[in-house]
Amino acid sequence: MIKFFRKIRKNLLRKNKFSKYLLYAIGEIILVVIGILIALQINNWNENRKGRIQELSSMKEVVENLKYDMVRCDNNINKNATVIKGLDSLRTSISNAIDGNDQATDIYYYALKYGIDYNKAVLNRAAYEELINSGSIKAIDNRTLVQQLSDYYQRIAFTVPEFRPKTGYENMQTSRKKFISFKGLEPFLQSFDTINKVSFSVDYDFKDIQQMEHLKLLQPHELALTDYYNDIAQFQIDLKTYIFYMSWVKEAANDLILDIKKEYQLTDTIE
Rank of each mutant, 00 (worst) to 15 (best):
R125K: 13
A126E: 12
A126K: 15
A126V: 12
A127P: 09
A127S: 15
Y128H: 07
E129V: 10
E130Q: 11
E130R: 12
E130D: 14
I132Q: 05
N133P: 02
N133I: 11
G135D: 12
G135P: 07
S136R: 15
S136K: 15
I137L: 09
K138P: 03
K138N: 15
A139S: 14
I140T: 06
I140E: 06
D141S: 15
D141R: 13
N142T: 05
N142C: 04
R143C: 08
T144C: 05
T144P: 00
T144W: 11
L145E: 03
L145S: 00
L149W: 02
L149S: 04
S150H: 15
S150Y: 15
S150R: 14
S150M: 11
D151G: 09
Y153R: 00
Y153G: 00
Y153W: 11
Y153V: 00
Q154M: 15
Q154I: 07
Q154N: 14
Q154Y: 11
I156E: 07
I156F: 04
A157T: 08
A157D: 05
F158Q: 15
F158K: 15
F158E: 14
T159C: 02
T159P: 00
V160P: 00
V160Q: 12
P161W: 03
P161A: 04
E162D: 14
F163E: 09
F163H: 08
F163Y: 15
R164K: 08
P165S: 11
K166H: 05
G168D: 03
Y169P: 01
Y169A: 01
Y169D: 03
E170N: 05
M172L: 06
M172T: 03
T174P: 01
T174N: 09
T174A: 10
S175G: 10
R176F: 04
K177L: 03
K178E: 10
S181C: 07
F182D: 06
F182T: 07
F182C: 08
F182H: 11
K183P: 04
K183M: 08
G184P: 04
G184R: 10
L185H: 06
E186C: 06
F188V: 07
L189C: 10
Q190F: 08
S191W: 03
S191F: 04
S191G: 06
F192C: 01
D193G: 08
T194P: 04
I195R: 01
N196R: 05
N196I: 02
K197C: 03
V198F: 08
V198I: 11
V198S: 13
S199M: 09
S199P: 02
S199N: 13
F200C: 02
S201I: 12
D203W: 13
Y204N: 12
Y204H: 12
D205E: 14
D205L: 10
F206V: 07
F206Y: 13
